[in-house]
């Protein structure tokens, strides 16, 4: 087989993780829809695994497979105007390296993230969460001393938790001896 083609397959499959979808399809970022489709057909004619199905070279087939799966992935995103706009913003931004592969922001995923964030806020260990919850309850009711004890206990489990520290800070500031005449 053509040596240049084999070299191209090798270099492309190795560089795959650094390429954005426009580079995978070899189109400019401003390409029109028709151009995207033409590029997809061009890359399919080059890298479609069926072309190499009869060969016995497993390594080549493996590389072709990886390239072609990425071609399909790129096309799926770039043929969709909404996804494409979001993707372009992603790879033009500072997070480019992390966002080369498009992920669907599904509703359930967003919810999951929110839940995770909430979990981080409320603590990552069961005991940390328990004490933090108790501290919050006490602080809200103005029982500062038990609140302080509880949040300090929570911090024992999660010394790095910023939200816990924030609460301790607030409790220390709000303690009655700092402001004994405050009428609640």
């Amino acid at each position: 087989m053509d040596v240049n083609f084999l070299l191209e397959v090798e270099s492309r499959s190795q560089a795959l993780e650094e390429l954005d979808y426009f580079e995978v399809l070899r189109v400019p970022t401003a390409a029109a829809a028709a151009e995207i489709k033409a590029a997809y057909y061009r890359e399919s004619r080059l890298f479609h695994p069926d072309r190499f199905a009869a060969l016995d070279t497993a390594e080549l087939k493996d590389r072709i497979g990886r390239i072609y799966r990425r071609v399909n992935e790129a096309y799926t995103v770039l043929r969709d105007d909404v996804k494409r706009a979001r993707y372009l913003a992603d790879v033009s931004g500072p997070d480019r390296a992390r966002k080369l592969r498009f992920t669907e922001a599904e509703e359930s995923q967003v919810k999951q993230e929110q839940k995770q964030k909430l979990e981080e806020v409320l603590g990552q260990t069961p005991n940390g969460r328990k004490f933090y919850a108790a501290a919050l309850k006490d602080a809200e009711a103005g029982r500062w001393e038990p609140a302080e004890r509880a949040v300090k206990s929570a911090l024992m489990y999660e010394p790095g938790n910023a939200r816990f520290k924030e609460l301790l800070d607030r409790i220390e500031k709000s303690k009655p001896r700092l402001d004994p005449f405050k009428i609640r």
């Binding site: 069926d50 072309r51 190499f52 199905a53």
Partner: peptide, 9 residues
């Protein structure tokens, strides 16, 4: 086909 391309994709 690997060399000459396929007749259909």
């Amino acid at each position: 086909a690997a060399e000459a391309g396929q007749a259909s994709y």
